[in-house]
Write a protein that binds this DNA or RNA. Structure first.
Length: 579
DNA sequence: TGGGCCCGCGCC
DNA sequence: AAAGGGCGCGGGCCCA
């Protein structure tokens, strides 16, 4: 750990070096970026050793090269004192002309890799550093670069590592800036739906009324609607034949208790997930600051640990309101995953169907299916591995129309069923199935295997096949989104600060020292972003967002003729953008 | 009392 | 309209 005195000097030191536009190499962005941002220092680019190491650990593209670099990491602490020694005398930040090459990495001290990376249930990265001796940061960086250089597709991996690291910076910046949130509007939404805020321990009035009606209709005066067990028993006792209390199953039944029950469940969800206590916990000083976990899922999509930022219900998005004089630029990539599939499969016919705005309409126009809804269901089924129902019935039609795209996902599924890894376009590899999965497969091949053993094995093989089928598409879409967002980030940085003109928007001080006077990303949801910007820059921001989308397409797919249209809106409130 | 599981449901 | 993939989270509930 840094000594206190050194930690205090860190932001100024980093800010000084930043003028040389280095790529910072550090252990973990989550560990370093927040304190820098809090001190008003933004870093342009970095190499996140933890995230990049996790990618390279499993990359099948890098397999051969990894074998040539088997050394265990060995961390050597390098503190700010040594960092400063590279600079002009003392701890004075160097001027732009100082003799430090722009691409020379600056080194941060690291005593041990943090390891909340337990994505690999199959075992791997998390025990990799177990008991490792302290080790040189630069050595680990060199090791990672060597793996990339010796890999099958170094340019793609390099792009992936840069995008992943940019994502890590963005994650920290989103939390630092926060989503502008109007607590009064949120409270109004809650009160309209639930009734006034109840006393602690009491249920909102609307929920109590609905619960009473359900109990009356079921003739179960003491029924606890919040208990799944109790509720299931109550429904059955009233003659409603259900196997669960899930909404989609309840909807199938015609009974006077169902409507108030569904209404109750909807309100209960709102209250527990985004009610008044959520508001008090997560919205401070007019900003919602969730804790993002970039690269937190197997496919490379982000996760959150706290705040539930990736599940913001549409119901409360009206509380996302730009500061006075500011506005929101809300953009999402329309039908991202099918477009990604078409491009990565090199399926020209599917890309053609996707050109313009609506790929589902395009599939109908190509004569593959008769109706837009059928196209949608078939395409989702192809990407998710549907085998039954309408979706399963339509998938073969899709396969005839777009054999290349279908072959790509079918190959991925077949690999998964064998227990093999699959890889995204840029080189992120899927985890291996857990040991229990292998045991299930092995059992079915034994001489004394029963029919049930075989059924179980086939079923779990298909389960894993659906995962890998979806992995390649979802993971590559996540890569597109990372590149998009990284492009937006760097373009916004070039727009710079709004000046001190009398007619300029006032600073958004709650966004923190780095972002108070400049457009900045505030939200990211898989294929959607929100930029909070001074109103006078909104058009420039929109252009930056569109340019970045086009650039992301070229970065991943070169000149392959696929486009990634955006639904983009410049609005004061998130609720006014079409979801 | 706290950890871990299941359920249900919000988002993509 | 449902069913295929990925998640997080809160509540209930069981068990130590």
């Amino acid at each position: 750990m840094l000594a206190d005195g050194e930690a205090a000097e860190l932001p100024a030191l980093v800010a000084g070096f930043e003028r040389l536009r280095p790529r910072w190499v550090w252990s973990d962005t989550r560990r370093w970026a927040p304190q820098l941002l809090a001190a008003g220092v933004r870093v342009e680019r970095c190499h996140d050793l933890r995230l990049c190491g996790a990618i390279l650990e499993w990359s099948t593209d890098a397999e051969a090269s990894r074998a040539e670099h088997p050394d265990r990491p060995l961390w050597l602490a390098r503190g700010p004192a040594e960092l400063a020694a590279d600079a002009t005398p003392g701890a004075t930040p160097p001027s732009a002309g100082a003799a430090v090459p722009a691409d020379r990495p600056a080194l941060f001290e690291l005593d041990e890799l943090e390891r909340h990376d337990d994505r690999d249930a199959a075992g791997g990265a998390s025990d990799r550093f177990e008991g490792a001796t302290p080790h040189q940061l630069a050595g680990e960086h060199d090791r990672q670069l060597a793996i990339v250089a010796g890999s099958a597709r170094p340019a793609r991996l390099r792009l992936l590592l840069a995008a992943e690291s940019a994502g890590a910076l963005i994650g920290a910046e989103l939390s630092a800036a926060g989503v502008p949130w109007d607590a009064a509007t949120h409270d109004r939404v809650l009160a309209d739906a639930l009734g006034p805020r109840p006393r602690p321990g009491a249920k909102p009035a609307r929920m109590e009324e609905l619960a009473a009606r359900v109990r009356a209709e079921l003739d179960a005066p003491t029924l606890n609607l919040d208990s799944q067990v109790d509720l299931l028993r109550g429904l059955r006792a009233a003659g409603i034949r259900v196997d669960s209390t899930a909404r989609w199953e309840l909807r199938e039944h015609d009974h006077p208790a169902i409507a108030p029950l569904l209404a109750y469940k909807r309100l209960a969800r709102l209250l527990s997930a985004n009610g008044w206590s959520w508001l008090e916990t997560w919205v401070v000083d007019g900003r919602f600051r969730p804790d993002y976990v970039p690269g937190g899922t197997a496919t490379g999509r982000w996760a959150t640990s706290g705040g539930g930022a990736l599940q913001l219900p549409k119901q409360i998005r009206s509380a996302v309101i730009a500061d006075p004089g500011w506005t929101l630029v809300v953009a999402d990539a329309a039908q991202l995953e099918p477009r990604v599939l078409a491009a990565m499969a090199g399926d020209l016919r599917m890309a053609e169907a996707a050109r313009g705005r609506d790929i589902y309409r395009g599939i109908v126009d190509a004569g593959v299916v008769a109706a837009r809804d059928e196209a949608k269901v078939a395409l989702l089924g192809a990407m998710y591995g549907a085998t039954t129902g309408e979706s399963g019935r339509l998938v073969p039609r899709l396969a005839r129309g777009f054999p290349r795209a279908m072959a790509l996902v079918d190959r991925a599924a077949a690999a998964g069923e064998r227990g093999a890894r699959v890889t995204t376009l840029l080189g992120r590899s899927s985890p291996l199935p857990p040991a229990t999965w292998r045991a299930t497969q092995a059992r079915a091949t034994e001489p004394e295997a029963t029919a049930q053993d075989e059924r179980r094995a086939r079923s779990s093989a298909r389960d894993w096949g659906r995962f890998t089928r979806n992995f390649v598409v979802q993971g590559t879409a996540a890569e597109w989104a990372l590149c998009w967002m990284a492009g937006v980030r760097s373009r916004l940085a070039q727009l710079g600060d709004v000046g001190e003109r009398a007619d300029a928007s006032p600073p958004a001080t709650a966004s923190g020292p780095v972002f108070a006077r400049r457009p900045h990303l505030v939200y990211y949801l898989h294929d959607e972003i929100i930029v909070h910007t001074p109103a006078e820059l909104a058009d420039e921001v929109a252009l930056a967002v569109r340019d970045s989308a086009a650039e992301a397409g070229r970065l991943l797919f070169g000149e392959f003729p696929v486009d990634f249209p955006l639904d983009l809106a410049i609005v004061p409130s998130y609720a006014e953008a079409d979801g």
